[in-house]
Amino acid sequence: MAQDERGVAVVSGASSGFGERIAQLLSRQGYSVVALARRADRLKALAEQDSTGAILPVVADVRDREGLARALDELPPDFRDISVLINNAGLSRGFGPLQSGSPESWREMIDTNISGLLNVSEVLLPRLVSRGSGHVVNIGSIAANYPYMGGNVYAATKAFVHQLSLNMRVDLQGTGVRVSCVAPGMAKTEFAQVRFDGDVERADALYEGIQPLTADDVAEAVAWCVSRPAHVNINMIELMPSDQNFGLGFAGSRTTPADGTDVT
């Protein structure tokens, strides 16, 4: 049975990483959660393991605007009072200089990180505005602000997310809908494995000798944003491991590339 204390939170990219933890935390805090992602098996497990019974798995691809709209239009009545949108779905594909990059990887990042976020926002923002209250949290990355070798197109897509968040805030002024952007640094999730096409050894090497952020760290930052009083808007939160030197590497190392964030 869905909860009704705080309305409904829609979390994109909820099948793993940040999205999974955000969905779990918000459900514990009284939200009914629409967990949106492509992987049906992961979503089913997420819903079954949640003790609140308030997570609804919805299989959809944020890149498919029409399919996404259908899925969100068909939500059960208990999950239609949407008060929070977490735009978390995204990825990084490939790692290296732009001059030797893959156009296919670029397109996948642009379609997911930019077009996907716009698709979800297009469908749901009018509902939040009609409600007269709500909160949008976009998951950005420190890569948007601090360049590092190999970041290029991924970092550019996150710069888009940061700037769009600020403009959404302006566009929604006076509607009762708040907008925040949470920009994590390096976090250990499946993100690096996706970037390196499933090469676990290469992905794990990024974290050697440091203590990265966890998905729980990021979920707690998101939950804090949406828990502020209605008159308070958190524009931006930037967080990173204590060991990380902004986007350029880690303490004591000039060669280890620093990732931006997990938004699986």
Results as ranks from 00 to 15, higher is better:
A144W: 01
E190K: 13
F191C: 04
S100I: 11
L72K: 15
N235T: 14
G134D: 07
E48A: 14
P76W: 13
N245R: 15
N88C: 03
V8N: 00
S92H: 10
G174E: 07
D73F: 12
R80L: 08
P184C: 00
Q49C: 05
A89L: 08
I210N: 01
C225K: 01
L91F: 08
G209P: 08
V129C: 05
P257I: 06
G140L: 00
P103C: 03
L166M: 07
F79N: 03
T52Q: 10
D199Y: 07
Y207L: 03
R127L: 14
V263K: 07
S51E: 15
S105H: 10
N119F: 07
D243H: 10
R202S: 06
Q24I: 15
L98C: 04
S105Y: 12
A71W: 09
D216T: 13
G249I: 06
A221H: 04
D217K: 03
S51F: 14
D78Q: 15
V161I: 06
A230G: 06
A47C: 11
P184S: 00
S253L: 11
L25R: 09
A223M: 02
P257A: 06
N88M: 02
R127C: 12
L172T: 04
P77W: 06
V137K: 00
Y148M: 09
A258G: 00
D111F: 09
N245Q: 10
G185A: 05
A60E: 10
A45F: 08
Y148T: 12
G17C: 02
V8D: 01
F79L: 14
T175M: 06
N87C: 10
L56M: 14
G116Y: 08
T112C: 05
E66R: 15
M1D: 08
S130L: 11
G134L: 09
G7T: 00
D61T: 03
L124V: 06
S27E: 12
D41Y: 09
V10K: 08
P76Q: 07
G249W: 01
D197G: 05
A221S: 09
R202C: 06
V33S: 00
L98V: 09
G53I: 07
E122F: 13
S27V: 05
D41S: 13
L128F: 02
D171M: 06
D61C: 03
N167A: 14
A47Y: 06
E20D: 14
N167R: 14
P212W: 04
S12G: 04
D78A: 12
V182Q: 05
G30V: 05
V33H: 03
E201D: 12
E238T: 11
W224L: 15
V222H: 01
A2L: 10
D217G: 03
Q193I: 05
G174K: 02
H135Q: 10
S180C: 11
T112E: 06
I139W: 00
A258T: 00
G198T: 04
F18S: 08
L248A: 14
G150P: 14
M186G: 15
Y31S: 02
V194D: 02
V232N: 07
N113D: 15
L125E: 12
M1N: 12
I86K: 07
P147A: 11
G260I: 06
I22R: 01
L26A: 02
V136H: 04
R38I: 00
V179Q: 02
A2P: 15
V59C: 13
V226T: 12
R63M: 14
D61V: 07
N87M: 01
V58P: 08
R63C: 13
D197R: 08
G101S: 14
I237Q: 09
N138I: 06
